[in-house]
């Protein structure tokens, strides 16, 4: 086990718009350790701080208090090496078509073909404009990118939202294609749909961890 790749959050608290009249506490005193290769589900009601935690784990938000590190280095310093799939995947796919988007991630043509194939797309999808794809297809393109990049830490923020049953099944299958050593953290408000994505379930409520159990 690569112990130095453990994700550690110690005393993490976060306040959105801290110091302004719109300040809103999101997380309070979170202590968390996630080992390499773990498949973790983070769940809880709306507004409990799930997405804030996802963004801290993805290295996109610096917590207002506490530390969030992996390999002894702050997660915010590793944002470019952490895979992230957000609910509104369209906001992540910035290039005009699928080929240009995937091409900007420095993958070999073989790797691209493999990732596209794993996600169940024909190669012709590469010439498709991003906006010609459905929400579910855009999310699968996002997943193809994650698979192709082979990041050792991947964060999925509400990956099942707005997907129909076949797309959800395809997504679960795609996540299973990620290498065993890849740590996958899935943030979801709908635990039933996401259960196949993780064995450890962490429950948040009002910004605090109120449950940490193994999925039977």
């Amino acid at each position: 086990m690569l112990l130095d790749e453990v994700v550690r959050l110690e005393g993490v608290s976060h306040i959105h718009a801290a110091g302004s009249p719109w300040a809103r506490p999101a997380l309070q005193n979170i202590d968390l350790e996630i080992r390499p290769g773990e498949r973790v589900l983070i769940t809880g009601p709306n507004g409990c701080g799930k997405s804030t935690l996802a963004w801290i784990l993805a290295g996109l938000t610096t917590p207002t208090e506490g530390s969030a590190v992996r390999s002894g280095e702050a997660l915010v310093e590793q944002a470019g090496d952490i895979g992230l799939l957000v609910q509104h995947t369209r906001l992540q796919l910035l290039r005009a078509n699928v080929a240009a988007e995937i091409g900007s991630f420095n993958m070999s043509p073989e790797r691209i073909r493999w990732a596209i194939g794993v996600m169940g797309f024909p190669l012709s999808v590469l010439s498709q404009p991003i906006d010609a794809l459905s929400v579910g297809q855009q999310r699968r393109v996002g997943l193809a990118l994650l698979i192709g990049r082979a990041c050792t830490l991947t964060v999925l923020d509400e990956p099942m939202a707005g997907l129909d049953a076949p797309s959800r099944a395809a997504l679960v299958e795609a996540v299973e294609q990620l290498p065993r050593q890849t740590t996958v953290i899935t943030v979801t408000h709908d635990l039933d749909d996401s259960l196949p994505l993780g064995r450890r379930v962490i429950t948040l409520d009002e910004g605090r961890i109120v449950g940490d159990r193994r999925n039977p």
Binding site: L60, A79, G83, Q92, S104, N106
Partner: peptide, 8 residues
Amino acid sequence: TLWRTRPK
């Protein structure tokens, strides 16, 4: 912000 997740 998501731009930061892209390779340089």
